[in-house]
Design a protein around this nucleic acid. Structure first.
Length: 890
RNA sequence: GGCGGUUUGGCGGAAUUGGUAGACGCGCUCGACUCAAAAUCGAGUUCCUUGUGAGUGUGGGUUCGAUUCCCACAGCCGCUACCA
């Protein structure tokens, strides 16, 4: 499109305003202590999830959330807030390193180039960021404080009594040994089975495995020495304190399920002919009388001990077949239950029964104790296993009658359909067996485990109790007989915190004689040395171990060669924005306390995609809580209000992807329609949180709207149109629409309902067009309201108009949000809807405040209404003034 | 399998202390301007068997009145997955 064909000259004025904002530092947010700081202004912290600066540049999903926060930020500024609205880059990560392997280029170089691109793209959209607060997680000064926070975590333990972290020095003061202390640290070293990828040359987090496997990389399970963070200590607080946050309920639930709290009991089973016990975790201690076998995870340490000679080879073969499968395969591909008998028996503590011990891959070593008591009558998985291997099934919960009847019916259907004579004789017998828990484990296709709660049967001292009562009574029995205890189990595991990559923060840790030591603060930041070759060595040694000069220190010390995962930087970046230039602390006390809310969460509004619902948002909460416990921050939570923007799909309604060829590049849209059009379109598509498809025609639509606003005031020659007049507005209807718009747009921004705000501004523009004359006062009010959405266009028009009318030429960015006039909103007349028996029959103009009798009288002047009610009895009249009148007749 | 979200014209969507369903935009139709087209402006646009008609995924319920509240079910999307 040539310049002359453009409906308004955005390609001239957009760069103009962007460079002016840059040069004048318009959106600089002063901190306490700065000259321009105004202590009377309230603070507002609105945050975007910062991007990973990939080589592909910004995609249209980024500006969705970024525009939303930009509108809020600009609006809050106009409302007199000191707004913190920063941007940065989550710049460590595997792709930069993969690129380095291919090209030999240092990741710092490609990362810097990518950041450059992102910054240019972000600036081209006119976001009102305080660019002086920009950070990148790879900046040495940033790395320094990431490492410092790690050491804070390393130097802390979790005090159970206080339910919070405390400095490790307290334990030193108590005279604890080095070994005892290391066992308590919130950052600790453990040998753990991890996912190791030989061709990537690193371990991967569980959640990363699938992604890299799908890209053709291989992964295998290996026990390796790893750094872990003790996030499990915070499991309960991470659940409880969600209630204090203004987050979408779905996200809260996702986190709760991820943490996965379940209440139950740990039960000890004596192993027959051995002098030790195996503990199992169960959420249903009330069904202990129904435990007819035990299952251990194939990796359970007791398996080799208890396996009998004759079962040994089968057990070992099975273990081998399992170790090559991933957890995912174990779940996904292996729907069929498998397992083998160890030859050993356990003793059910409650009835002395000897029950066989099996191993099976449906029991995971990583959850609970890696061993279960199987109650096939009341657990689907156990039931499936028991029927497959013909293990006994005993019902211990009285099933409901309709369940029994259904099962009997299914049995009858089944036996008639296969046309065989039932070996179980009568319907009555089946029914009797089901009711009394005397389950038959042969030909059970007609029945499933009874997993509902109920009343205990066949359970000795529990008989007749409800499930809740029975659970509690059984736990009491276990405790008093020293056979078990109450137990709360979490799914959440400790956080595997080390990677063998190059492009991440090195651990500020050194080793000597198998003992780790913290690097002193004055040696931070510890940066990774440049390497000649970034290729993985093929061994699980971290890449950094290749830099032998860097690794080997005097006096027999060596450096830790693992690096931190990408999450580390994103765990605290919102804190650094508050005080990003501080070289003495990660954030000054003054800055921290100024930007902290009275509410539990520090950041007032956090906008980003759902993909971070658990990991990033859980990790950041965890770090924040540790920092809170140690007195470094004043709130227990990082993010008070969270909003998830919905995914933007391609025009075909599918997820955007290169392979589908439906990717929209924001640069192209800016070039063709301008930044304001892109911003406005992304907000006009639909509700922020909703998934919605892209439509190029929609961009044209909002672009046309902006062009109409432009033409209201500016002629083709670029002069201020003579339609714009200085006289006060005499058009009551126009005045009403303008004030309605001021009101509604403000309310809608507060609700984050940007699409409806825009539609109201369209209505307002149409009203100006209809009116023919554009009163300058009302028009500037409208431009002010439009400014957060389309900052360039509104500023440009405002500049033209204020100059032409010799008005003060303050930029809209420095303006105050206009007040609307209640008087101007008042309507005196309305079109009342008249219904007969609930159906719309007529509309009649009348005074807004007409009395019911007057309104009724007016309604009956209508021919239609007369016709429809003639000769009928008027039973009831419902009258809602200004809205509706319903005449009920019969 | 579990959890969450969602379902309204040809399309994106609007409307909930229950009160005119389809705001606003796209698309389409017609008109004006033009030699013509584009752009722009104006009018119209839920559907049909044009009726005292039907209609917000389907079936029921509450109500003078239901997109909105209740019950049951279904489709689509996302996340998660043998968690004992």
């Amino acid at each position: 499109m040539s310049e002359s064909r453009k409906p308004f000259p955005f390609s001239q004025f957009e760069p103009k305003w962007q460079s002016r904002w840059d040069a004048e530092n318009t959106f600089r947010t002063p901190n306490p202590g700065e000259a321009s700081f105004d202590a009377t202004k309230p603070k507002y912290y609105v945050l975007d999830m910062f991007p990973y600066p990939s080589g592909a540049g910004l995609h249209v999903g980024h500006p969705e959330g970024y525009t939303a926060t930009d509108i809020i930020g600009r609006y809050k500024r106009m409302r007199g807030f000191n707004v913190l609205h920063p941007m940065g880059y989550d710049s460590f990560g595997l792709p930069a390193e993969q690129y380095a392997i291919k090209t030999g280029q240092h990741p710092a170089i490609t990362t810097a180039a990518n950041i450059e691109t992102f910054r240019r793209q972000l600036k081209s959209l006119g976001f009102a960021y305080d660019w002086e607060r920009e950070i990148a997680t790879t900046d040495p000064e940033y790395v320094r404080w990431t490492q410092w926070i790690f050491l804070e975590i390393y130097n802390s333990y979790f005090c159970e009594e206080a339910n919070r972290a405390r400095p490790i020095s307290e334990l030193e003061a108590k005279g604890w040994s080095r070994e005892q202390i290391d066992a308590e640290r919130l950052a600790f070293v453990a040998d753990t089975p991890v996912w190791w990828s030989p061709d990537l040359g690193t371990v991967l987090a569980n959640e990363e495995v699938e992604e890299w496997k799908s890209k053709g990389h291989t992964v295998e399970r290996r026990p390796l020495r790893q750094w872990m963070l003790r996030i499990t200590k915070y499991a309960q607080r991470l659940i409880d304190e969600l209630d204090t946050l203004d987050w979408p309920e779905g996200i809260k639930l996702l986190q709760k399920n991820w943490i996965g709290r379940s209440e139950g009991a740990e039960v000890k089973f004596q192993i027959l002919n051995y002098n030790f016990q195996i503990e199992v975790f169960t959420t249903r201690p009330d069904t202990l009388f129904g435990a007819t076998y035990m299952v251990l995870a194939p990796e359970h340490p007791y398996v080799p001990l208890i396996t009998t000679e004759e079962n040994k080879s089968a057990v070992e073969t099975y273990q081998k077949s399992i170790s090559s499968k991933s957890d995912l395969d174990r779940g996904d591909l292996n729907k069929d239950k498998s397992g083998v008998f160890t030859g050993a028996y356990a003793v059910n503590p409650v009835n002395g029964e000897q029950i066989p011990i099996w191993i099976a891959d449906y029991v995971m070593m990583g959850y609970g104790t890696g061993a279960i008591m199987a109650v096939p009558a009341h657990d689907d998985r156990d039931f499936e296993f028991a029927t497959k291997f013909k293990l006994p099934i005993r019902g211990v919960i009285q099933p409901k009658e309709d369940w029994v009847n259904l099962a009997v019916k299914q049995y009858l259907d089944l036996s008639s359909s296969i046309d065989s004579v039932s070996t179980y004789a009568e319907e009555d017998e089946i029914k009797h067996r089901l009711e009394h828990g005397v389950w038959i484990y042969d030909k059970l296709a007609f029945v499933q485990a009874y997993t509902e709660l109920g009343v205990s049967i066949n359970s000795g001292f529990l008989d007749g109790l409800t499930t809740a009562e029975a659970k509690s009574k059984m736990i009491d029995w276990l405790v008093s007989n020293n056979q078990g205890k109450r137990k709360i189990q979490f799914k959440l595991r400790d956080w595997l915190f080390s990677r063998q990559r190059y492009w991440g923060e090195p651990f500020p840790i050194i080793w000597k004689d198998g003992q780790h030591y913290a690097l002193p603060d004055d040696q931070l930041p510890l940066l990774a040395p440049p390497l000649d070759d970034y290729k993985p060595s093929g061994t699980p040694d971290p890449l950094l171990s290749k830099a032998t000069e860097w690794v080997n220190l005097p006096d027999g010390f060596t450096r830790e060669t693992n690096t931190m995962p990408q999450w580390a930087g994103s765990c605290w970046y919102y804190l650094r924005y508050c005080d990003n230039k501080n070289s003495d602390r990660f954030i000054s006390k003054e800055a921290e306390s100024y930007w902290t809310s009275e509410k539990p969460g520090m950041v007032d509004l956090y906008v980003g995609g759902t993909e971070h619902a658990v990991l990033h948002l859980l990790y950041a909460r965890f770090w924040h809580k540790v920092l809170f416990d140690l007195g470094h921050v004043g709130t227990p939570e990082p993010f008070q209000k969270l909003v998830n923007q919905g995914l933007i799909l391609g025009e075909d309604g599918q997820k955007m992807s290169k392979s589908r060829g439906n990717v929209v590049n924001p640069d192209d849209v800016v070039k063709e329609y301008g930044a304001d059009s892109l911003r406005l379109y992304e907000m006009f598509m639909g509700p922020l949180e909703q998934v919605k498809p892209w439509q190029m025609k929609g961009v044209e639509g909002v672009s046309r709207f902006l062009a109409r606003v432009w033409r209201l005031a500016i002629t083709e020659e670029g002069e201020v149109s003579d339609k714009v007049v200085s006289e006060a507005c005499t058009d009551k209807e126009l005045s009403r629409v303008v004030h309605e718009t001021i009101k509604k747009v403000g309310e809608d921004i507060e609700k984050l309902s940007f699409n409806t705000a825009i539609s109201q501004m369209m209505i307002c523009t149409n009203a100006f067009t209809q009116a023919g004359k554009v009163p300058v006062k009302e028009f500037i009010q409208f431009l002010t309201v439009l400014n957060p959405f389309a900052p360039h266009l509104s500023e440009e028009i405002n500049e033209h108009v204020t100059k032409a009318f010799n008005l003060p030429t303050a930029s809209l960015s420095e303006s105050v949000w206009p007040m609307y006039d209640e008087q101007a909103l008042v309507r005196t007349e309305c079109e009342l809807v008249v219904q007969v028996n609930g159906k719309l029959r007529d509309r009649i103009w009348m005074a807004m405040d007409a009395s019911e009798d007057d309104a009724k009288a007016l309604a009956f002047t209508s021919e239609k209404i007369k016709e429809l009610t003639e000769g009928k009895e008027l039973r009831k009249v419902i009258y809602v003034p200004g809205k509706i009148m319903n005449l009920v007749v019969s």
